[in-house]
């Protein structure tokens, strides 16, 4: 009767408004891209699970999008809770979206201290011949953060380049460092989600 549950790993997207987090999210869900994203169409959907196979193991990556809260206010601290990985997203054609990452990094280490952190330069199709953010900049940043960054990627939501590779690699790295924890997750059911009530059992005899 033992049911083997597929481990679910929460991955959050962090970064400035407009760097393409929702586009990454959309690529993750159904591999589409909207040039001038019709924001309304993602309303009501803020996380999505997708299965990845790593070696002989299946894991579900559960990707979360901010829902645009960062536009003016800050993202709620709940967003970070239970995250196994955080992807810091910046836009390769926008230097300021890169320089502000240290702020987002601080939020991650504060609210999701166990999360593995990845760096993603998006909009690689706009990088051109004189990039706003150079490879050297990225390397420097990683060094400054005392190697908190596990890996760096370049992606383009417009062409779809680099995205599946990134998620597969993140899945692999999470499985590697979480092996023991994933085993535990199957056992530990101390806290729970609340759901609709089960249909009532047969009335028990009250005598």
């Amino acid at each position: 009767m033992a049911v083997v549950k597929t481990p679910v790993l929460k991955v959050i997207l962090c970064g400035e408004y407009g760097v393409g987090k929702s586009s990454i999210f959309r690529r993750f869900i159904n591999n589409t891209f909207l040039p001038n994203a019709d924001k309304k169409s993602t309303l009501g959907l803020d996380h999505f699970e997708k299965m990845y196979r790593v070696g002989d193991k299946d894991v579900k990556l559960q990707l979360w999008d901010t829902g645009g809260m960062e536009r003016i206010a800050s993202v709620t601290s709940s967003y970070y809770k239970y995250a196994e990985a955080a992807v810091l997203v910046f836009s390769l054609d926008n230097a300021s979206s890169f320089h502000i990452l240290s702020q987002h990094l601080l939020d991650i280490v504060t609210y999701a201290e166990n999360a593995k952190i990845f760096l993603c330069g998006n909009k690689s199709d706009l990088e051109g011949s004189c990039p706003q953010v150079t490879d050297a900049d990225i390397e420097n940043f990683c060094e400054q953060c005392h190697n908190l960054i596990s890996s760096t990627y370049k992606t383009s939501c417009k062409s779809g380049q680099g995205l599946e590779e990134m998620f597969l690699d993140i899945a692999q790295q999470l499985v590697e460092c979480n092996r023991s924890k994933i085993e535990l997750q199957r056992l530990d059911h101390n806290s729970f989600k609340i759901t609709h009530p089960e249909p009532p059992d047969e009335p028990s005899c009250s005598c």
């Binding site: 309304k40 309303l43 009501g44 959907l45 803020d46 829902g67 645009g68 809260m69 536009r71 003016i72 206010a73 709620t76 601290s77 709940s78 967003y79």
Partner: peptide, 15 residues
Amino acid sequence: QGFARLSAIYGGTYM
């Protein structure tokens, strides 16, 4: 925070 997030996902603006 959970309900604030719900509001944001449905288009609410936060300050």
